[in-house]
Amino acid sequence: MSTSADEFAKVAAKASGGINVTGVTKRFGDFVALDDVSIDVPDGGLTALLGPSGSGKSTLLRVIAGLEQPDEGQVLISGENTTDRRVQDRNVGFVFQHYAAFKHMTVFDNIAFGLKIRGQGTGKIRERVKQLIELVHLQGFEKRFPNQLSGGQRQRMALARALAVEPKVLLLDEPFGALDAKVRQELRTWLRHLHDDVHVTTIFVTHDQEEAMEVAEQIIVMNDGRVEQSGGPRDLYEDPASEFVMGFVGPAHRLGESWVRPHDVEIRHEPNGKTIEALIDRVVHLGFEVRVELTLQDGETFSVQLTREQVDELELKDGQIVFVRPKSSRTFSPDGTVPATVA
């Protein structure tokens, strides 16, 4: 895990803005939400905290924001130790899954809130809010109340509100989690573009690996209150450090002792010594992609991803007996933490 890239990120984060979390532990009663977690987020980067629910990713984000106080460890923002600083004094922008819109205020007043707190003049506030409204494409909605907006619009308003105070870091807690699939897709792309324009150090929490891979430059995978692995989307997919990451980042199936991605399996009609016999349960056409669902002799099921041409060429049909062989696979040590072999 401590590759030279990680070391570089650490140095870069310390030198400029960025966020360093070292040795943070957080307990809620008997439950250990964060167990000695350390992460480094480079200045101006867009980083995803990825993990299943209960993995501690949201708690970590709240600790960075100051909404939660860690039991141990420290948080550095732009090289400054902010561990004991109140959330009010950290200058972070926080965006919540359920928007946390001030529902008794108009869109304008929502976005202007942080500026008013800072005692800025009316003219200045008006100008800044206007810019932000344009940035999040909410022109014409200034006088609306949050309940007159769609979920996507509310979240864009919440983003503008957080950006208004020019935060050092922007923290997004499952920002698209409450939206339907189509809007979620739009907002992902939009957030990516927004980040290219604004360049504020951003961390967003998600349980959706596709979302993390699409939006983030760096992904930190969390499980059980610990960091499993961090790295670029491609590193995680191609070089997972543990069984958990293999299974969580992208699809993977266990085939005997090893793990294999569904597109890394060869299907043939004749055995060649290295293959295992399997029964085709179903051939599912998903457009360009075809998913072949198989059952092995020991009753284990898994699926293989092929293109339409490959399926046509092999003339695969439901109920056929075929022979499969992993083109590449990974094996982990018995406790599932260390990659043993790459075949």
Partner: peptide
């Protein structure tokens, strides 16, 4: 969360 949002904005 409204209160937390307000706090994060400095209130």
């Amino acid at each position: 969360e409204m209160e937390e949002a307000a706090a994060s904005l400095g209130a």
